[in-house]
Design a binder for these strands. Structure first.
Lengths: 262, 262
DNA sequence: CAAAATCCTGCATAAAACCGCAAAAAACAT
DNA sequence: ATGTTTTTTGCGGTTTTATGCAGGATTTTG
């Protein structure tokens, strides 16, 4: 009977972190959560949930509103200023990445603002084929006069406007591109590339295996940071591009790990 | 199953901020919104909507006027009267088509401005799944708070921003949806539905076979016109929707051919 | 100018957020 | 182990927020 008690204790009491992970999952899935739903669902008081939401909101992982919370990616909000701030950096990154793309190449890319900047910067006389799951990226590529564009289809993940699912991954696995260019959200020498969205990670994982060379684009702020879910090891990266000069100290460990830094 | 309760409560209750985001979205799309429309759509009182509009107006996100609100982005006078006129027709068509879409349905649609208008008019509490090859349409569906969206992937046809090819057609053939809703460019009692783009026709052909019911949307100007390539026969259509009242003379032949006219 | 629609203002109410506080649990140190 | 500190959680009471409703004022419309 002690086992029984233990069972229920394990069943009913969710650790704080467990709860918060679950909350984030729900928020990213449904774009919104209600305090009352969550408290009923995991059998804790409203206050506890509210405290969780406030903490998560303070970390910027969601947006707290009266009655619940909304996904932060859902609503274009204060982070826009920061986006504008790093716009210049992304432009530099895009320029560096451009040098890798040659005529006739087959390139598979992720989404994200850095990739969008790359797509906008493509020289008009380039003739290449781009593959992506990201709807905004595909639209941007489609504006190019010469390049071919292939959209990977599947269920659309609404907050981030990209397709994800087993169909998408199967399709990506059928591809062997010349380059895979990923915009990444966290890179650490030990934890490799990581991200906080399950679907994004699955797709990126598939993409890393779908090309001869793996190129990663990121602003330097994201270097030496981690996110919950791993995409791949750092040593899987072939080329790393940031806005910093290649000889910067921050990048030294990655060079030593055999990554080409631009 | 516990998720089920959460599921429904999420759909019944709309957070204030959620509402306001939705309102802004509508305003930016249509350049105007009516208080009464909004309150009916989201099933809250006029007062609540008015308060929302006032708050948003105070933040400068829109311009409050008697009876509703206008987009603040370009309050330049609606220059193109014809544009507005055909917009009204399409809005009528969209409203009629809405009545066919029930909760839980699986709907496959084409692209085009009429379909876009339909996507924008979906009631916020609808829960359905939409499949499409059209990138603008998918983006529009993805803005809906509840509906699932599936993008069919393939090579992107740049001028019209939709995917087409054998992969897409194979994928469409795997689907059996409740409804297929096509925005069409030409309809004639003898030549059926026709279009002028080879890829569009191939995709539409596949779509007509991928659903139990075929619904066609078109403004009356396109009735009794022809285009070079045929999609299907007129008698394959189950339901025809135009901006005209169903008893209009123009539509008589189609009724006689066994098509339900709305 | 009159009727209809829309708005504002205050008020009532229910839900949600906040504030301490105390108990329980977990982590830590001895 | 055992006692101490820290963290986490739930509870009661209070304050704030969100929303609908009723009326009278105001605007639009024909």
């Amino acid at each position: 009977m002690q086992d029984f008690a233990l069972f229920w204790r394990n069943r009913l009491l969710m650790l704080k972190k467990e709860r918060q992970t679950y909350i984030l999952h729900q928020v990213n899935l449904h774009n919104k959560v209600l305090c009352t739903d969550l408290s009923q669902h995991m059998k804790v008081s409203d206050d506890t949930i509210r405290r969780d939401l406030n903490e998560l909101a303070q970390e910027g992982r969601l947006i707290k509103v009266h009655g619940g919370a909304l996904s932060s990616s859902f609503h274009s909000t204060p982070s826009d200023l920061e986006e504008i701030y790093s716009y210049d950096k992304k432009k530099i990154i895009a320029q560096k990445a451009l040098r890798l793309i040659k005529n006739g190449m087959f390139v598979i890319t992720s989404g994200g603002t850095t990739i969008l900047e790359l797509a906008r910067s493509l020289p008009p006389d380039l003739q290449a084929t781009f593959v992506s799951c990201s709807i905004p990226a595909v639209l941007e590529y489609a504006n190019h006069p010469q390049c071919d564009v292939i959209m990977i289809g599947d269920k659309v993940s609404k907050n981030s406007k990209f397709t994800a699912g087993s169909e998408a991954i199967t399709k990506i696995r059928e591809i062997k591109a010349d380059l895979c260019i990923l915009g990444i959200n966290a890179l650490d020498i030990h934890h490799g590339i990581s991200d906080n969205d399950w679907d994004v990670v699955q797709v990126k994982k598939a993409m890393t295996g779908a090309a001869q060379k793996l190129v990663c684009l990121t602003i330097s702020e994201k270097i030496n940071t981690q996110q919950p879910i791993q995409v791949c090891e750092a040593c899987d990266i072939d080329i790393l591009i940031t806005e910093l000069p290649p000889e910067s100290d921050l990048l030294l460990p990655y060079k030593e790990a055999g990554i080409q830094v631009l």
